[in-house]
Design a protein around this nucleic acid. Structure first.
Lengths: 340, 340
DNA sequence: CTGAAAGCGCTTACAG
DNA sequence: CTGAAAGCGCTTACAG
């Protein structure tokens, strides 16, 4: 069999019309039992699979959601995708997964490709480079539903599923303060990343709230480059008055900082207590285990999907974008359990 | 505009036929320049995107590859996918990414869904549960090209892109022996995982080759459960005659073992030297940094894609499945640098 | 219970 | 240089 089996092949072989085959395949009640049996039997024998392109075309529905994330290799996104997938499968939708590798260009082509009739809506977390939102506004103008998560684009009025990073950082910093830290440093991400800035705000609020002095020299900006993290950590702990607490913008950076601290024989948590964000698996594996703010990744994914699907399925109703803020949870582990 | 703009809308508005619009959109040379201009101008103005379902249907080509991996959250797979994506984009193909979460059922439905006319070929790494290969044989019978990587399915005669796990483990174990280890333990994965067994074989070969005695009590089987790893590590190092070298089947397990060793105040590498597999980012971040066998993930992805595409594009030619074995590389770091 | 016909949004010989 | 027609693999009123 050179080509895939079609409805036509079956119809011809059974001497019936394609319409009847189509109906029998979908178990429509009006079909005579014997006809249905014959069709199903042959379909099975020939391993017939309905061509989903044809079905989608005629129905003008793909029941498919386009998902665009910065990088599948980031544990956070892989984890949110699990939630998206669960909800999508449960609701009978498929996923088209794409990554931008943090490139605006890729984001643009991904959006364009997927909007060629392939998907009915988008779940998007923006690339770091993205500052122009025209491609997303275009989707809105066409009436294609979009839901954002994690990375924000303040400008655009769409449904968003977020966590309160400011509050999460406030609580994490407070936790250090409660454990007796007086001089708390903040190891941030690049200054261009919204999430990092939000966490910095929460950190500052906690200091103010506790009446602790803010020392700008304790706020430093790193990235995924390990060497850079080591340098920044060394800088902080070679200050004449080094910190006794450290808030790190993500686990990956925190693990790098721990490495640098060990090399300097600075004890964790005795000399410095540490909290970070994301609660990746590495937090429990590393030594000392790392206190971290867990995001409800599965729930973010499910919620985003559920909201998107209701937009898709109620497309005639005027839709009011909403912003959902989900709760984070501080997972306390060894790195912050200072004996007071 | 309630629906997406189609070729018909443009044709009607410009008073020309859809055939002409179709030709103009694709820059066919026979179209009169003014006609082309007019079409392109309106297409841009209306943000027309050709419906890819329709195009695929009429061309009987989707230029899409189905990718099925156990879990996108495993760094290894995310990393191979980068390679797949690079090559696919370069060759003008798109990807349909799916994960099985190590479930046979999911693998089955993923294969079925994607073979409904959506993809022209598959790149697959099998789920741990998969022991029945009927779904893959069905693809073969239909003449749909398939390329395997990483997880093997010995039974099936398809193109495979693999690494030589036996040899990699042989070299890794030899490295410990060269560094003076005499009693080397092997922390394996579940006994059902081929990759783990291959590595165990290499480990045994190295011991034999060096004339070291094989002690079965030094071979233990763990999984991703941290508590289990800690117990196994404790068991090994509470033996009357504990190991001085440790080969671990993957980085994630190795980091757990390191944690357990530290808790017991066993020094790495002085008391025990460690090597593991995959060379995930955590290897450089952890302390001490972890010696690990790097797999050429990008190359695996590119190679698999390239081989698949040549099968797709030469589908008339009788294709001989080939097995590609790529080289691994031992990245030596602190965990194994014992001073002899 | 079944079939003929029209149509989903495109492409492509064929004719002019 | 352009258009009418057929067709990709389906679904769905409509008629019988």
């Amino acid at each position: 069999m050179g080509h895939q089996v079609t409805i036509k092949d079956i119809a011809r072989h059974l001497n019936i019309s394609v319409a009847t085959v189509s109906r029998a395949m979908r178990d429509m009640p009006e079909i005579k039992p014997e006809t249905r049996e014959a069709v199903l039997k042959l379909a099975k024998e020939w391993d017939y699979q309905p061509n989903i392109l044809a079905t989608s075309l005629v129905k003008s529905r793909t029941k498919t959601i386009g998902v665009i994330v910065p990088d599948l290799a980031y544990h956070f996104f892989a984890s949110v995708i699990k939630g998206i997938e669960e909800e999508a499968i449960a609701r009978g939708y498929s996923l088209l997964l794409t990554q931008t590798r943090e490139l605006y260009e890729r984001e643009l082509t991904n959006v364009q490709n997927l909007s060629r009739g392939q998907v009915e809506g988008f779940i998007i977390s923006l690339s770091q480079e993205t500052t122009d939102f025209e491609h997303l506004k275009r989707l809105q103008r066409k009436g294609i539903p979009v839901v954002f998560f994690d990375r924000d684009a303040g400008e655009i009025d769409v449904t968003k599923v977020m966590v309160d990073n400011v509050n999460a950082a406030f609580e994490a910093t407070n936790h250090l303060i409660d454990n007796g830290c007086k001089r708390i440093a903040f190891l941030a991400g690049p200054a261009s990343v919204t999430v990092s800035n939000q966490r910095q705000t929460g950190y500052l609020q906690a200091l103010n709230h506790a009446g602790l002095e803010v020392d700008k020299s304790l706020i430093v900006h790193g990235n995924y480059n390990l060497q850079k993290i080591i340098e920044l950590t060394n800088y902080l702990f070679e200050l004449q008055n080094p910190p006794d607490g450290l808030v790190v913008v993500s686990d990956r950076l925190a693990v790098g900082a721990i490495k640098a601290l060990k090399a300097k024989n600075i004890r964790i948590p005795e000399d410095v207590a540490i909290v970070s964000f994301n609660d990746e698996p590495v937090c429990t594996i590393v030594s000392p285990s790392l206190t971290s703010v867990a995001q409800p990744t599965t729930e973010i994914g499910k919620m985003a999907t559920s909201l998107l699907i209701s937009q898709i399925e109620n497309s005639t109703i005027q839709y009011n974008p909403e912003v959902i803020i989900l709760k984070t949870e501080l997972k306390v582990r060894e790195s912050s359990m200072k004996i007071k």
